[in-house]
C-alpha cells in the first residue's frame, strides 16, 4: 500500500513562500516524477512528504492517514538522497541493516533481509566493504538497498542520478525502472532532467516556482502541454517558439513547434532561414537555423541531412503539430 495525498500543502521559510499550496494525488504503485528547473521547490516538496521539513499549512495523507505532523520514521517512507548519504564508517552490510537495527529487528531477520536486498542489487560481493571503496553506481545501489530493506510504503528519490557520469546514469535509470516493476511500490522521484522524467514516470508532475504546472503521463505532457512552460520543458531539444506574424496568422500570441516536427527542404517551405551550426550525429541531424525574421530555431532531421554552415534551408511544421499559446502562455 502506498497512496499519498497532498491537500493545500504550503511551505514558507520565514517570509519566503517556497510552495504556495499544492494539491496532489499519488496512487499506490505509481512511479511519479517531480520535474522542474532548479529552485522550483521539487526537493522541498519531497522533503515535506518525507517529514524532514514541517509544512506551514495543509495536510499530508499517507494511505488515508493524516501524517502531517508525524516523525519521518512513522511515515514508513524510505529516501534515497542525492549524495547517497551512506554512513562512511559502516560496511555496506551495516549500512543496509541500519534502519532494521534502529527498528530493533532480530539479527537473523536483519541478515535475511540484507541478503535478499543485496541479491536484488548485485551487492552480495561487496557487503563487507566500506562506502569509500565503492564506485558511484555501487554506492547508489547501497543507498537503494538501505531503502528497500525497510519495505517502505513508498520510496522517495532526490535527484539520485545527478552525481553519476552520463553512461552510468542511463544504466541506473533502467535499473531503477526495473526495480519499480519488480517491487510495484510507489516511488516519487525528483529530477531536473526531463529525459529521466519522460523515460521513467507513470505520472509526471511539472513544477515551477512551487506551483504545479501540469500533471499527466509523459506522452500526455508531450502531446498536450497545458502551457508554454510545460511545452518548453518537456521534449529534447526544446520546443521552438515563434511570435509575431507567423503566430498571428494562426490566431495566437505565440506558436510552438518541436524540432522533430519540422519538415526540411533545401528548396522551398513555409519558413526560410540560414543554417548556423549543423550537428551530424549519424542517426539524427540537428540544425541550428536562424530564420529570416531573426528568430533562432532548432530542427531535427532523421538520419543524415547534407547541409552545412551558411546554407539556405526551408522549414515546414508538420500538420497538426503546431501548438498555439495565448498572451498568458496558456495553450489554446
Amino acid at each position: 500500500m502506498g497512496s499519498i495525498t497532498l491537500k493545500q500543502v504550503r511551505k514558507a521559510f520565514g517570509e519566503v513562500e517556497v510552495i504556495p499550496g499544492v494539491d496532489l494525488d499519488i496512487n499506490d504503485g505509481e512511479f511519479v516524477v517531480f520535474v522542474g528547473p532548479s529552485g522550483c521547490g521539487k526537493s522541498t516538496l519531497l522533503r515535506l512528504i518525507a517529514g524532514l521539513e514541517d509544512v506551514s499549512s495543509g495536510t499530508i495523507l499517507i494511505d488515508g492517514q493524516d501524517m502531517t505532523e508525524a516523525a519521518p520514521v512513522k511515515r514508513k517512507l524510505a529516501m534515497v538522497f542525492q549524495s547517497y548519504a551512506l554512513y562512511p564508517h559502516m560496511s555496506v552490510r551495516k549500512n543496509i541493516a541500519f534502519p532494521l537495527k534502529m527498528a530493533g529487528m532480530p539479527a537473523d531477520e536483519q541478515a535475511r533481509r540484507v541478503g535478499h536486498a543485496a541479491g536484488i542489487l548485485n551487492l552480495t560481493d561487496y557487503l563487507d566493504r566500506k562506502p569509500g571503496q565503492l564506485s558511484g553506481g555501487q554506492r547508489q545501489r547501497v543507498a537503494i538497498g538501505r531503502a528497500i530493506v525497510r519495505e517502505p510504503v513508498a520510496f522517495l528519490f532526490d535527484e539520485p542520478l545527478s552525481n553519476l557520469d552520463a553512461a552510468l546514469r542511463v544504466n541506473m535509470r533502467v535499473e531503477i525502472s526495473e526495480l519499480h516493476k519488480k517491487l510495484a511500490t510507489t516511488m516519487i522521484y525528483v529530477t531536473h532532467d526531463q529525459v529521466e522524467a519522460m523515460t521513467m514516470a507513470d505520472k509526471i508532475v511539472v513544477l515551477r516556482a512551487g506551483r504545479v504546472e501540469q500533471v499527466g503521463s509523459p506522452l500526455d505532457l508531450y502531446r498536450r502541454p497545458a502551457n508554454r512552460f510545460v511545452a518548453g520543458f518537456i521534449g529534447s531539444p526544446n520546443m521552438n517558439f515563434l511570435e509575431g506574424e507567423a503566430a498571428a496568422k494562426l490566431n495566437a500570441h505565440a506558436i510552438g513547434v518541436r524540432p522533430e516536427h519540422f519538415q526540411l527542404s533545401t528548396t522551398d517551405g513555409m519558413l526560410a532561414g540560414t543554417v548556423g551550426v549543423a550537428e551530424h550525429l549519424g542517426s539524427d541531424t540537428f540544425l541550428h537555423v536562424t530564420l529570416d525574421g531573426g528568430t533562432h530555431v532548432v530542427a531535427r532531421a532523421s538520419g543524415e541531412f547534407p547541409v552545412d554552415h551558411g546554407d539556405r534551408i526551408w522549414l515546414t511544421p508538420a500538420e497538426g503539430r503546431i501548438y498555439r499559446f495565448d498572451q498568458q502562455g496558456l495553450a489554446l
Binding site: F13, R47, G51, L52, E53, D54, A71
Partner: peptide, 8 residues
C-alpha cells in the same frame, strides 16, 4: 532547515 521538533 528542519522541523519544529528538531529546532526545539
Amino acid at each position: 532547515m528542519a522541523t519544529k521538533h528538531q529546532k526545539t
